[in-house]
Amino acid sequence: MRKLIMRMSFTVDGFVGGPNGENDWVFKSSDETSRAAAAEGFREAGLIIMGRKTFEGLSSYWPTASGPFAAPMNEIPKAVFSKSGYKGLSPVPNAEPSPAQASWAAARIFNGDLAKGINELKSEPGKPIYAIGGAGFMRSLVVTGLIDEYRLTTHPVLLGKGQPVFDGLEQPRDLKLVDVKSFPGGIVTRIYHPA
């Protein structure tokens, strides 16, 4: 059974986005070392999963992007989860997709029960599954109790208000700290496993 890893950036006061999802603060404190470490981490993934909103935004950005994240984001297979009966990307008429565009268009789509879809993916052979995305998808993922590792990156900023992820848990979840890495720009990544 392969491992499900949640990767998420947070503010010091626990938000993953501003009130309207703003995340420009993520880039203000990143530095070459933290970006390289994050990109290298993605290379261990065998699958990247996300919610529909994140998928639609990233699928229009990454195929033409450059930088350390472009190759892993475009090459690693993807799966998208939706509650609304999402059909996937529409092909561009009379156009041959680039390999990067084809990778996004080939994403597996899971509509309906999130836990059932996650269990299906975890039961397949392969390298770890990386979960990325917005507050709503991550909140739903946490509630399933199927996350094997939390890679939580704290950025040195306070927003005062915004979008949390860990609100709404019906009961506390104990975690065990297994690693901590700090970077020159003030970013700290903590890795936790369920206790």
Rank of each mutant, 00 (worst) to 15 (best):
K3E: 15
K3F: 01
K3M: 13
K3C: 08
L4W: 04
I5R: 11
I5F: 01
M6F: 14
M6V: 07
M8R: 06
S9Y: 14
S9H: 15
T11H: 04
D13K: 08
D13L: 10
G14T: 07
V16I: 15
V16Y: 01
G17F: 03
G17N: 05
G18L: 11
N20Y: 08
G21C: 02
G21E: 00
N23V: 14
N23E: 10
D24F: 10
W25K: 05
V26A: 03
F27M: 13
F27N: 12
F27W: 15
F27E: 12
K28P: 03
S30R: 08
S30W: 07
S30V: 09
S30M: 14
S30N: 15
T33Y: 06
S34V: 12
R35E: 14
R35T: 09
A36Y: 06
A36H: 13
A37P: 05
A39K: 09
G41I: 05
F42G: 05
R43G: 08
A45V: 02
G46P: 05
L47D: 00
L47W: 02
L47Q: 02
M50W: 02
R52H: 04
T54K: 03
T54G: 05
F55A: 01
F55D: 00
F55Y: 15
F55T: 02
F55M: 05
E56G: 03
E56S: 03
L58Y: 13
L58R: 01
L58S: 05
S59R: 00
S59I: 01
S59T: 04
S59H: 03
S60C: 02
S60A: 15
W62I: 00
W62G: 00
P63W: 06
T64V: 13
T64M: 09
T64D: 12
G67M: 11
G67A: 10
G67S: 11
P68F: 11
P68V: 14
A71W: 09
P72G: 07
P72K: 10
M73I: 05
M73P: 00
M73Y: 04
N74L: 03
N74F: 08
I76T: 14
I76M: 09
P77Y: 06
P77F: 07
P77Q: 09
K78C: 04
K78H: 13
A79C: 11
A79M: 07
A79Y: 08
S82L: 05
S84K: 13
Y86D: 01
Y86N: 02
Y86F: 15
K87Y: 01
G88E: 06
L89T: 10
L89N: 07
S90M: 13
P91D: 10
P91S: 07
V92P: 01
V92F: 07
P93Q: 13
N94P: 03
A95R: 15
P97L: 12
P97K: 13
S98R: 12
S98F: 09
P99Y: 11
P99H: 10
P99W: 11
A100R: 08
Q101Y: 07
A102G: 06
A102C: 09
A102T: 11
A102L: 11
A102Q: 15
S103N: 15
S103M: 09
W104I: 00
A105G: 03
A105H: 10
